[in-house]
Amino acid sequence: MTLNEAAVGKEYVIESVHTEDAEMDAFLFSLGCYSGEPITVIAHRAGGPIVAIKDSRYSIDRSLAGAIVI
């Protein structure tokens, strides 16, 4: 499943990140968002989830959340 379907507050392991945009993939990587790393959805909002990666919070939209498979 993707981040859009993730349960709130549960720690998942990222399986793959495929945004079809190499630079975006690399950017997410530099934040620590890549396969094998943990990720937690803090809340689902209208535009997309708020996620915790390492020690930071990010708000991402649904299309990006859909590209992150957990």
Binding site: D21, I50, R57, Y58, S59, D61, S63, L64
Partner: peptide, 11 residues
């Protein structure tokens, strides 16, 4: 064109 949005939410 598909665009993605990501923004850090500082405390």
């Amino acid at each position: 064109k598909r665009s993605y949005f990501i923004i850090e939410m500082p405390a």
